[in-house]
Amino acid sequence: MSTNSQPTSGAAIAVSGLTKTFGPTKALDNLHLTVGTGEVHGFLGPNGAGKSTTIRVLLGLLRADSGTAKVLGGDPWNDAVALHRRLAYVPGDVSLWPNLTGGEAIDLFARLRGGFDRKRRNELCERFDLDPTKKGRTYSKGNRQKVAIVAALASDVELLILDEPTAGLDPLMEAIFADAINEVKDAGRTVLLSSHILAQVEALCDRVSIIRQGHIVESGSLSDLRHLTRTSVQVETVRPAAGLESLPGVHDLSSTNGKLHFDVDTDQLDGIIGHLHGLGIRSLVSQPPTLEQLFMRHYGEELAEATNGSSR
């Protein structure tokens, strides 16, 4: 685990040892999470892992059983009001007031937060192609989500806490959202982005944390994490590469038409390539691990447990 690879001082979010139970359910179990100032931090994990619960604790909406949490240097429970002036939140399931229009809801959120820029708000509405005159209940799911996104982006805040903000957005809007987040990043603001869309996390995030059953199981920059997983290699050599499978870090070796396919632990890549070089490389294709593979590994454990458990 590389949780300690980032200094905690000056972190926008610093959580340690957080535990929260709902009756018999242990939603958070000794959770550690650090989000550095100015970074876009991806927050990943299977359904029910505890992402939303963590976020609600960070917002001072839930009271943790034990552990400490610091948001922008303050205590999220006791300094809630002061902190909320400096952060904006987009929930995953936006519920709007049936008798308020989207425009009214945006203004309400943004102006109650303070630091509201009307020009920017109108520009965002246009960018996201959002009709602000519709009543809350008449919005489609994606448009409801946009109301919350526009309200959050229109405020001038240091920290954005986004809980699956793009659930329900079409691909075009997702791209626009990505642009907007990049602008936020350029402006030096911090983002905590919980998402199930791995491509989005990969494109936007500097660092990610993976949570499973209320516990962070992996945390670090994407390149850090890549080192923890395997690169897949396809190679054709002049001399036959006998004995390759006995080298450390090589897995799942197979050959078709004289081409070798195998996965290699990324931290052993250098040694393997050196070995292959000695055999004369005719062609080489190497694929870095995708976040999906990384993620699936953590899912996989769960999946394997689940299928073992249910097999008759």
């Binding site: 917002l59 009001v81 519920s95 919350a148």
Partner: peptide, 13 residues
């Protein structure tokens, strides 16, 4: 209905 949550995530005690 989940509408208190975003409001209480504002600087509003």
């Amino acid at each position: 209905a989940g509408r208190a949550e975003p409001v209480l995530a504002l600087p509003l005690s």
